[in-house]
């Protein structure tokens, strides 16, 4: 029982005795127990499969750990090695940035333009939408193998592209086998294959643009181009921003060359060795798990910094109608 003061009808205060209320915490737990149970599997999954490995990888990054016989504390040794002792790193950073600079604009603009085309009201346009999306249903490993055949460089049995080049009298290209910029450019070219995936997101965004805006613009005499720049593009900026960030993260983590490029994905002369692949190779090909964890954390920080920078400069994004 608790004693509280209460005002009487005459304005006087009087001490009254009230039954004890259940504590705030107990009440809230009781009220939300169903909700807790619903999210329990997810929370458990996040803790075990995400949180735990994150912490573990941070911990391992301070050790020389080779997964079999060595687990020695090296402090920041792995991080120092990334920035000063690994001869691969200049090439890795150059390739990754080059790939990001090429791939992000090409895939963003390409999928956006494709979405604009697929958004028009034409008879049979749905067939095209399905056709363009179809490659995305193919597992990455399968498409990687298919593309390695398409771009194969071999004097006796060249791939489809090189056969076309030969037929036109053009010199063959080494594509993924090249030991220079051509190898990264080939990956960007290959990624056009899955533009349909991004297109779906753009189409969903276009459908959310109120029709009244276009109707009003038409009444005001705005042409197609004007309507695009005045309505479609500004109204798409939230999705542009979202795609920019996700594309950036995916591009920095890219390790798809593993399935098709020579030299375990690193290419000739490490032409396709990028950050994501470097982490994989260090972890599993060379079993330098501690070093691989340190690389992963450097990537996390780099992605975090760039994402923060993008958020700081997002004034061009138009969030309201």
């Amino acid at each position: 029982m608790v004693t509280e003061t209460a005002k009487t009808g005459c304005g006087e205060t009087a001490a009254v005795t009230l039954p004890r209320r259940p504590s705030n915490l107990k009440k809230r737990i009781k009220g939300s127990i169903t909700g807790w149970l619903f999210i329990l599997p997810t929370v458990f999954g996040i803790c075990v499969f995400t949180l735990y490995p994150i912490i573990q990888s941070l911990y391992y990054s301070f050790f020389d750990y080779n997964m079999t016989s060595r687990f020695d504390f090296v402090g920041f040794g792995n991080y120092i090695r990334i920035f000063s002792g690994d001869s691969d790193m200049p090439k890795v950073v150059t390739n990754t940035l080059l790939f990001a600079l090429l791939n992000i604009p090409v895939t963003l603009c390409g999928s956006y333009l494709l979405a604009l085309f697929l958004n028009v009201n034409l008879k049979g346009i749905k067939v095209f939408r399905v056709l363009y999306y179809l490659p995305c249903t193919m597992p990455a490993i399968v498409s990687g193998i298919v593309w390695s055949y398409i771009m194969r460089y071999n004097v006796e049995t060249p791939g489809l592209f090189n056969q076309m080049f030969s037929a036109m009298g053009l010199p063959m290209s080494r594509f993924f086998y090249a030991d220079n910029f051509t190898a990264v450019a080939s990956i960007v070219l290959m990624n056009l294959w899955s533009l349909g995936g991004g297109t779906i997101i753009w189409l969903a965004q276009f459908k959310n643009i109120p029709k009244q805006l276009y109707e009003a613009a038409e009444i005001d005499g705005a042409g197609t181009v004007h309507r695009f720049f005045a309505i479609t593009l500004p109204m798409s900026t939230p999705m542009v921003f979202y795609n920019l960030i996700t594309n950036f993260i995916v591009t920095l983590q890219f390790n798809g060359t593993l399935t098709f490029a020579p030299n375990t994905g690193a290419g000739n002369n490490n032409a396709t060795l990028m950050f994501g692949l470097k982490i994989y190779l260090e972890a599993f090909r060379r079993t330098n798990m501690g070093y691989a964890c340190a690389l992963a954390w450097v990537l996390v920080v780099a992605v975090g910094l760039v994402t923060a920078l993008l958020f700081k400069t997002n004034k061009w994004v138009q969030y309201d109608n």
Binding site: C47, Y52, I55, Q56, Y59, M67, T68, S69, R70, F71
Partner: peptide
């Protein structure tokens, strides 16, 4: 508290992975 517990457990179990001594 839950997160701290998980972190502590993670650190504890991550302390020493399976290593084969000479």
């Amino acid at each position: 508290s839950v997160l701290a517990l998980v972190m502590a457990l993670a650190l504890f179990t991550a302390c020493r992975p399976n290593i084969i001594e000479e």
